[in-house]
Amino acid sequence: VGDQVLEIVPSNEEQIKNLLQLEAQEHLQLDFWKSPTTPGETAHVRVPFVNVQAVKVFLESQGIAYSIMIED
C-alpha cells in the first residue's frame, strides 16, 4: 500500500476553509492537484501513505465527502 489520491467534495464554504487549512499543514506533505474553490466541486489531493489515515479521520470528523481516486 502506498500513497493515495483522494477525490474530495466539499459541500459548503466552511468545508472549503477546512480543506485550505489542511493544505497549509506542511508536515502532512499533501499535494493538491486541484484545490477546493467552490462547494460541490471536486478537489484532488495526493496523500503520502504515512498520512492517509490522519487525513481520512480529519475529513470524516468534518463531514467532508471523499473517495479514493487512485490507490498506489
Rank of each mutant, 00 (worst) to 15 (best):
Q15H: 07
V55G: 00
E26M: 13
W33H: 07
V9N: 07
A43F: 15
L19D: 00
E14M: 09
E60T: 07
F32L: 03
E23F: 14
E71N: 11
I68Q: 04
E60G: 04
I70L: 11
I64S: 00
E71Q: 13
I16A: 03
N51P: 00
K34D: 10
A24L: 11
Q21T: 10
V47F: 01
D31G: 07
P39I: 10
H27V: 08
K34C: 08
G40P: 02
T42S: 13
V57S: 13
E60C: 05
E71A: 11
P39R: 03
V47E: 00
I8K: 01
P36V: 09
I68S: 04
S11T: 11
T38P: 02
V55K: 00
Q21V: 12
D72Q: 12
P39C: 04
Y66T: 01
F49W: 11
Q29L: 09
M69T: 05
S11A: 13
A24T: 09
V55T: 03
E7H: 14
V45Y: 02
L30A: 03
E13Q: 10
R46I: 05
E71C: 15
V9A: 06
I68V: 12
H27T: 06
V52P: 00
I64F: 04
T37C: 05
I70P: 12
E41V: 10
Y66I: 01
V50R: 08
G40Y: 08
E7T: 13
P39K: 04
P10I: 06
F58E: 02
I16R: 04
V50C: 12
V55W: 02
V50P: 07
Q53Y: 10
L28H: 03
L20H: 07
I16C: 08
G2N: 10
P10F: 14
V52A: 06
M69W: 08
Q62R: 15
I68A: 04
Q4F: 14
E7G: 04
G2A: 08
Y66P: 00
E14Q: 09
F32H: 02
I70A: 11
G40S: 03
N51M: 10
N18Y: 15
I8T: 02
H27Y: 12
P48V: 03
D72N: 11
E14H: 08
L19C: 03
V52M: 10
N12H: 03
K17Y: 13
V50K: 11
N51K: 06
A24S: 09
L6V: 03
E13A: 09
V47C: 03
P36M: 04
H44W: 15
F32I: 04
Q29W: 06
